[in-house]
Amino acid sequence: MKPAEASERLKTSFGSLLSGRNSRQGRWFLALIILFLIAGLLSVYTEQFLSTGNLLNLIAQAMPLIITAIGMMVVVLVGGLDLSVGSVISFTTAILALGAPAYISIPGVFVLAALIGLTNGLVVTRLNVHPIIATLAMQFIILGFARILRPVSGGDIPDIVIASVNGAFLGVPLPVFWGIFTFVIAWKLIHGSRFGLHLFAIGGGRASGAEDAAHNFGVADKRNVLLAYVTCSCFAALAGVFLAGRIVSGDPNVGLNFELDAITAVAIGGTQLSGGVGSLHGTIIGALVMALLANGMNLANISPFVQTAIKGGILLLVVGLQSRKKMGL
């Protein structure tokens, strides 16, 4: 191979890695570069950023968003969207704060989350309702239930939940293990199983306008889409358990706007909102970018109201940069 040809080949392969145009995994490499840029800026401007304490704290801060965004991505892969995750998180903390024994309440929240996801999925796949409308309605119903159970923040979280979030094992804080646990499960689910492969197949067909492509190739599309919504709600419940342990109370407003943050993280990570393109590592990178931005804005003393506005602007920007055929909803 001639040197010029080799460098040309390197250039195109790097270009395609950067743009993610030819990849099933999307534009995650660009997100990784942005992540390092922000981390670099933060470490230059503030001394304590790179300290182990701050980094571990950052992981604990980012964990709920990482977990929620992974769940959201599963639904986005099939071309759907779940706007009810924020309410599911609030609902989960409200239930954990009821004071029931841990061996009832912890499995209980996952059963309830699975039921919520099942309802979402059934309404979308069997009753032919647009996913955004179905999950938007569900968002209000679940938020209502959360506020009935716990009108203001408070209540008793089971000790085991608090310990599992705030403790340490062999000197390593437990949120790190939460991260590893979530990553292993999600990797198996999305990139290592038939279910994950089918998610890409269903979403890929829908994104290119062939609604029934996966179905025609023998993929049980309705069942898999249904399972995607169940998965998403269960991940949201997991994030809710983590958050409950962190804030040590039940709070009906803790999940407010969480769905938008999760969608932003997913979109930053290179997942196409029309479906079929995306990756787990991209989503985690996206969530970390969001967490770093929040951390940086806090260090820069930016008002929380402006922070919300900036997050909205980022969402509008990343989604606006994605190409989509369909217009409207």
Binding site: L81, L273, F305, V306, A309, I310, L315, K326, L329
Partner: peptide, 24 residues
């Protein structure tokens, strides 16, 4: 219409941008 962003995401994002600015 032009950028082809999902309308829910675009208008929800617009919503939190303006609300954040006004509350600030």
């Amino acid at each position: 219409g032009i950028r082809r962003v999902s309308a829910v995401i675009a208008t929800l994002a617009m919503n939190i941008i303006v609300i954040g600015a006004v509350e600030f």
